[in-house]
Design a binder for these strands. Structure first.
Length: 295
DNA sequence: GTATGTACCTGTTTGC
DNA sequence: TGCAAACAGGTACATA
C-alpha cells in the first residue's frame, strides 16, 4: 500500500508532468471513488472540466491539485490507489476508476486514478487550493519542515493511549501507517502498548526521529520513478523487501537479538515486535481499594 | 476532548 | 476440487 514516501513520489511526479495542464474532460467509471464529492459523479466531472492545474501539494497521505479558480482536486490513494499519468492511447487498467483527459501543457496525456479496493477517493474541494477544509484536522507529517517536534512530544505525553495508536492518530502526526509505526517502534525499542503518558520526553523524541529515518530511507530507495513518462507507484516498493526489521516478519529472528518476532492482533490489523527488545509494558499497578471501616 | 470499536472494499491466501 | 472464512489496512464515523 502506498505509504507517505510513495505518496510524495506521486506528488512530485504530478508536479512535474501535469502542472499547467487543463482538464478537458473527466470520466467517472465507478461512483465509489468520488463518494465524498457533494456533487456526485456528474457534479465532480462538471466542476473540473476546463480548469487549469496550478500545482501539486500534499499533507500526510492526502494529495491535492490547486486549480485556477481557487478550488482543488483532493485525492487519497487509500490502500491500493494509483495515480498514473498515461499517454491517451494507453489501454484502460483493470481497476481504472476515474480518467482525467488533459490538454494544453500535458496534451496527449491522461491522469488515471486506479484503485482496486477503493478505500481511496477523489473530490473537488471548494476553496481548497491553499489547504482543503476537508483536511484541516490532519496534522503535518514528520517530513514537513513546519512539523512541531516539541508540540508532538508534549501531546503524546499527555495521552494515556498506547504509543502505537498515537502514531496512527492523524490529528497528532500524519503519514505514519501500520508498517512504519511498527518499524519506528522497533528502532526505538518501544512496545506499541506503552502509554504515551508513561514515556519520557527523550523517548518520544527518539521515536519521532526513528519514524523520520524510516521514511527518509524509503523515500531515498523508492523515489526512482521521477523521470518516467508516467508516475507509477504500485505499492510494492523494493524498500519493503530489504529494509523491514519487524513488519511482516513473524517468527523470524530479530535483526538485533535473534529472538523470534511476535505478531499480535491490534485494531483489526497486526502488530509485529521483538518481545525482548520491545518488552510488553507491565500493567499499571492497581491500587487496592481502601477498606473503610464502618463507624 | 479522549478512548475505543467498527464499517468500508476486493483480490489473494488459508482452511476445511 | 470447491467453497467459505480470514486477511490486508487508512480513514471516517459512532458510541461511551
Amino acid at each position: 500500500m502506498p505509504e507517505l514516501p510513495e505518496v510524495e513520489v506521486v506528488r512530485a511526479g504530478l508536479e512535474r508532468h501535469v502542472v499547467g495542464a487543463r482538464i478537458a474532460r473527466v470520466d467517472v467509471l465507478h461512483p465509489r471513488p468520488v463518494r465524498r464529492d457533494p456533487g456526485g459523479p456528474e457534479g465532480f466531472a462538471a466542476a473540473l472540466a476546463g480548469r487549469r492545474i496550478d500545482g501539486a501539494r500534499r499533507r500526510g497521505k492526502y494529495l491535492w491539485l490547486p486549480l485556477d479558480n481557487g478550488d482543488a482536486l483532493l485525492g487519497h490513494l487509500g490502500m491500493s490507489g494509483q495515480m498514473l499519468v498515461q499517454p491517451q492511447e494507453a489501454p484502460p487498467e483493470r481497476h481504472l476508476r476515474v480518467r482525467l483527459v488533459l490538454e494544453g501543457a500535458a496534451e496527449g496525456r491522461n491522469i488515471h486514478f486506479v484503485d482496486q479496493r477503493m478505500f481511496g477517493g477523489l473530490s473537488v474541494s471548494a476553496g481548497g487550493a491553499e489547504l482543503p477544509p476537508e483536511i484541516v484536522h490532519i496534522a503535518r507529517d514528520p517530513l514537513d519542515p513546519a512539523f512541531d517536534d516539541d508540540l508532538f512530544v508534549a501531546r503524546v505525553r499527555k495521552r494515556s493511549s498506547g504509543v502505537k495508536r498515537l502514531l496512527l492518530d492523524q490529528g497528532l502526526i500524519s503519514g505514519v501507517g501500520n508498517i512504519y509505526a511498527d518499524e519506528a517502534l522497533w528502532r526505538a525499542r518501544l512496545h506499541g502498548e506503552r502509554p504515551g503518558e508513561r514515556l519520557t520526553g527523550p523517548q518520544v523524541r527518539a521515536l519521532l526521529d526513528h519514524a523520520r529515518e524510516v521514511m527518509d530511507e524509503a523515500l531515498g530507495q523508492g523515489g526512482t520513478s521521477f523521470d518516467a513518462l508516467y508516475v507509477n507507484v504500485n505499492g510494492e516498493s523494493g524498500y519493503f523487501d530489504r529494509s523491514l526489521h519487524a513488519y511482516g516478519r513473524q517468527d523470524e529472528p530479530c535483526d538485533r537479538c535473534g529472538t523470534p518476532i511476535r505478531r499480535v492482533a491490534f485494531m483489526n490489523r497486526s502488530s509485529y515486535f521483538c518481545p525482548r527488545c520491545q518488552p510488553v509494558p507491565r500493567r499499571r499497578r492497581v491500587m487496592p481499594l481502601a477498606v473503610i471501616a464502618p463507624d
